[in-house]
Design a protein around this nucleic acid. Structure first.
Length: 585
RNA sequence: GGUGGCGUAGUUCAGUUGGUUAGAAUAUCGGCCUGUCACGCCGAGGGUCGCGAGUUCGAGUCUCGUCGUCACCGCCA
């Protein structure tokens, strides 16, 4: 062994011990007649000291040390004359008797310390150096603990951890697949899984009863701060269960993770229908840390000759508590904010509810004090509050009001990272109409079961059919989702035909699954959590990159290893591939 | 595919209305220093202002293009 102790464990009780440490040089403080060296490893920092009693050879060697050298230090633990209360090893130091440079280091491009001077690009390029920093490493330690908590919990509930293939088959539904050419099967391709969906259902048919896997999934779509081309799911499936059973089980899992890793107790998870989430929060992933609900005031405000409102399909409002004092500048700022192309609202109407009980609005020309009072009653606004109103087509306005609500919540400091408000959003629509291709798409995926009471609607009004599908949402982040599955091959066929598959297409794409259903399929349901998002939420971060050891950038590139990259002509030839790159304009 | 921000010393940034030799902090190197722990003090070196074109007597600064990066919309469960 290169060491007898780590750099984080020596204490005053060890005084007098002969020890050997190994680690990285954090900093050298040369005071002339004596020199201090901070030696770092993942466990902590221990101070080494050279003074007039130290062997000359050691004193000479210490001068040559630079940042991030890897050294072995041998010496005696002793009590410090001046102690450092800020670190656990601060009462002791090592009087050096021998020092060995195990590996010298070039000067790092940024400093390895908590408040590093490195920008994002540089830290990504030298990710292995960034990972030496406590702050970054701690995120990955948290991730490891959370993965352990998942396994402990699910193992205790008789789940079987099963691996499923990574080289699978491309399917047309859902996200774009990453594809992998097959050398042995000329002209054919594997796809990397967007999720192990069909395999976990087959495991249920195989009688595994309870399955889970912490598994990499792949989607070839454009990226965001919370989206990577490869990401990790906690993937689960259960047999002989209904929606309620799944939600209880995974509420238990979530609660267990909060308790084990953050020592946080969270309230029972409320169930909110999708329709309510959309109407009151303007989102299918509501942030329930604060109220400021959206109110439909369409009927209240129409008929006063204000043409903008009278011609609108929907008029909605939110009430920002205590914001009546907003200045003209602030209100203009909000107006411009909602008029940005990303939100795309035409404008913003405000009503200030003054402390003296009067109202001041941007539409005073059309509305009396009594009219505005009615608005206030409708939105629950009291003296000192600010009502913000938008009008237009309903779907768009709910979306815009939802965004404005989040922005106001942010401005008012209502989105506290240390508060966790989980909920289940349930009763999602089964299908989603796509204007462009004039067909229905599965909102969740094609194996999702409709609610039994809505099955009749599949023939008459498919868009109205609700699914036994559910999402776990925490603090406005979609953490995961799942559904009760179809286990009847007749119903599954019907679903495929609603999605516009011909019998032949369905057979070619999912024949193996439909066939399997004919050999005795148990009722089953499942769920998958986005593990990266869950870890970043627990860590209080806005990006999942910081909880992934080696993440990719905005464009799906790994700037450290520089991938993706071109391959040799011979490799392409072996795969019978020819590039056909389009000319850039 | 689209919109916007950023790109200046190893690093993080400042740089006025377009005007002399592009600055600060930090890091690095050298000197001094016996209790530092963000050590301190003195000194030094360090620049293709992302790249290319244009406007101009003159461009870090203005315009266009391009590359890189980040955020968002489209896309994605």
């Amino acid at each position: 062994m290169y060491r007898t102790h780590t750099c984080g464990e020596l204490r005053i009780e060890n005084a007098g011990n002969e020890v050997t440490l190994a680690g990285w040089v954090q900093r050298v403080r040369d005071l002339g007649a004596m020199t201090f060296v901070d030696l770092r490893d993942r466990y902590g920092i221990t101070q080494l000291v050279v003074d007039e009693n130290t062997d000359k050879a050691v004193a000479v060697a210490i001068v040559e040390l630079g940042r991030e050298f890897v050294i072995q230090a041998i010496g005696t633990v002793r009590e410090r004359q001046s102690k450092n209360k800020n670190i656990p090893t601060g009462e002791v130091e090592i009087a050096l008797s021998e020092i060995n440079v195990l590996s010298p280091a070039e000067l790092p491009p940024f400093t390895i310390q908590d408040d590093t001077d490195g920008g994002d690009d540089l830290r990504m390029k030298y990710r292995y150096l960034d990972l030496r920093r406590d702050a970054v490493r701690e995120n990955l330690v948290l991730r490891s603990k959370m993965a352990h908590a998942v396994r402990n919990y699910l193992n205790s509930k008789d789940f079987i951890e099963t691996e499923t293939p990574v080289l699978i088959k491309s399917t047309p539904e859902g996200a774009r697949d990453f594809i992998v050419p097959s050398r042995m099967n000329e002209g054919q391709f594997y796809a990397l899984p967007q999720s192990p969906q069909t395999f976990k259902q087959l495991l249920m048919i195989a009688g595994f009863d309870r399955y889970y896997q912490i598994v990499k999934c792949f989607r070839d779509e454009d990226l965001r701060a919370d989206r990577q081309p490869e990401f990790t799911q906690i993937d689960c499936e259960m047999s002989f269960v209904e929606q309620k059973d799944v939600l209880e089980m995974f509420e238990g899992l979530t609660r267990h993770m909060f308790k084990e890793t953050l020592n946080v107790e969270v309230d029972e998870f409320p169930w909110m229908p999708y329709s309510e989430a959309m109407e009151k929060y303007g989102s299918d992933k509501p942030d329930t840390r604060f109220e400021m609900l959206i109110n439909d005031i369409t009927e209240t405000v129409k008929g006063k000759d204000f043409v903008v409102f009278d011609s609108a399909e929907y008029i909605g409002a939110i009430c920002a508590k205590g914001c009546a004092e907003y200045t003209r500048k602030q209100l203009d700022g909000l107006t411009n904010w909602v008029k940005r192309p990303q939100i795309g609202a035409k404008g913003l109407v405000y009503v200030k509810c003054n402390e003296d009980g009067t109202f001041k609005s941007s539409v005073d020309k059309f509305y009396s004090q009594d009219d505005l009072k009615a608005w206030a009653e409708k939105t629950g606004a009291e003296a000192g509050d600010l009502i913000l109103v938008m009008s237009g087509d309903k779907k768009h306005m709910l979306d815009a009001l939802g965004e404005l609500r989040l922005e106001m919540g942010k401005q008012l400091g209502l989105r506290d990272k240390n508060v966790f408000k989980p909920l289940w959003v349930v009763d999602f629509p089964l299908l989603e109409w796509d204007e462009e291709s004039k067909r229905f798409y599965a909102m969740h995926h094609p194996f999702t079961s409709p609610k039994p009471e809505d099955i009749e609607l599949m023939d008459t009004d498919p868009g109205k059919v609700r699914a036994n599908a559910y999402d776990l949402v925490i603090n406005g982040v979609e953490i995961g989702g799942g559904s009760v599955r179809i286990f009847d091959s007749e119903l599954q066929s019907k679903m495929f035909s609603l999605l516009g598959f011909t019998k032949e297409e369905a057979e070619a794409q999912f024949g193996f699954l439909m066939k399997a259903f004919k050999f005795g399929a148990p009722p089953h349901a499942g769920i998958a959590f986005g593990f990266d998002r869950l870890v970043s939420l627990f860590a209080g971060l806005d990006t999942i990159r910081d909880v992934i050891a080696f993440p990719k950038n905005n464009a799906g590139r790994d700037v450290m290893i520089d991938s993706p990259s071109a391959v040799a002509e011979a490799q392409l030839d072996e795969l019978n591939l020819k590039l056909n790159l389009k000319e850039k304009k």
